[in-house]
Write a protein that binds this DNA or RNA. Sequence first.
DNA 1: TGGGTGCTTCGGTTATCATCGAACCATGAA
DNA 2: TTCATGGTTCGATGATAACCGAAGCACCCA
Lengths: 228, 228
Amino acid sequence: MKEGPDIALLGAMIGDPARANMLIALMSGKALTATEMASEAGITVQTASSHLSKLESAGLLQQRKQGRHRYFTLADDDVAEVLESLMGLAARRGLMRTRTGPKDPALRHARVCYNHLAGDLGVQLFHSLRQRDLLVGSETDFALTDAGRAFLDDMGIDVSALERERRPVCKSCLDWSERRTHMAGALGTAMLERFMDLGWARRVPKSRVISFSPKGQKAFEEHFPTIN
Amino acid sequence: MKEGPDIALLGAMIGDPARANMLIALMSGKALTATEMASEAGITVQTASSHLSKLESAGLLQQRKQGRHRYFTLADDDVAEVLESLMGLAARRGLMRTRTGPKDPALRHARVCYNHLAGDLGVQLFHSLRQRDLLVGSETDFALTDAGRAFLDDMGIDVSALERERRPVCKSCLDWSERRTHMAGALGTAMLERFMDLGWARRVPKSRVISFSPKGQKAFEEHFPTIN
DNA sequence: TGGGTGCTTCGGTTATCATCGAACCATGAA
DNA sequence: TTCATGGTTCGATGATAACCGAAGCACCCA
């Protein structure tokens, strides 16, 4: 018949509303149990279990057993990236799940995208580094300069440790609300963690929102200024 | 209930095998008719029509009427990009379709379409001019820039003379074999004539084939380069 | 004006699959 | 062992939607 990758299978996985809700819930980067995801998607555990096994055999999910629980996460950054790009297209087409509620501005300002910072501040972070030549290269393929490494070192981020991990350090991700690139990869994860360690920001429970304290916001602006 | 873009709808669109086949067929950048896509997907034209209207109302497709035909293309580059990223993920997950049959003969290189150049080279001509901003506007409605006029003047084509004719100077046409836009109108005619005057090409008798000499082919490539 | 073609609409059939109740399995605690 | 909890498997049901035949519409050409 035809050659090439089979996107229909992936589409079908994402196409079911219950499964889509679960995947989006996992975009928070947190590992969730079957029961949590069931309530997230508004279905029973039996149904959720069936969906989870399908998603797993399609290679979209990973599960980790821990005691009596089974924790599910997205399989890898690739999956998160594809979901993000789908959300971008849907947003631009005006395909929204519901009326944009009060949480929406907060989501656009700062939220977690799988494991890194997204939204307004995520975009600002990335472009600030580029404008000051702490990053070189294109928006999709870039690297740290020596000045960039020094800057991150000052912030308390051990870049050489990141480089010893298996994941790519420098990776970008397209933001669905801003429609611009923000920082992903091991570096993106490390920076978000560092912000929270420094007390600049914390996660709002049961949501993707990242809440910056006034002090944290100020510190962020100082560290990542943008021209214009 | 939930906030954020609705990826389930997009997923469902892509999730049906017939629709996925159609979308992948359109990834060639070519415009296809409903009948062609039906046979491509192995379904009847009625069913294809239903799918096409769904895809269109989801904002994934655009249609363009020309004569008795309706040519469908992907809505924009965004859609192609998302499909590409899905194909990437599917490929990495080992989700493949099966092999394709043999392709059509090589009449597609260069031929005459009424009075202008069509086929591979015709498409290249048009897109080369657009890529270098010698033409501005959409694929269906465009005009020459000043740089474009100068460029044509250098080639020995008198644009102002063309403008005194009654026919529209700038017109595009959908290519029979490539299914992408190529140059038509008075300008298309004039350019083909000029190529033959310059000795780059000649008509093969009793056929629509335009035969480029080695030298002519080289000159053509130099005058109308394309990225990709 | 009539005939041919490309495409859409309508109706009815069929098949897939999401869903949940109930039973079953596994782990941990008492 | 027994009980409790988290999760999967099984079976039946119901809703959705893909599918095609037939009819209708739009456009082109002679």
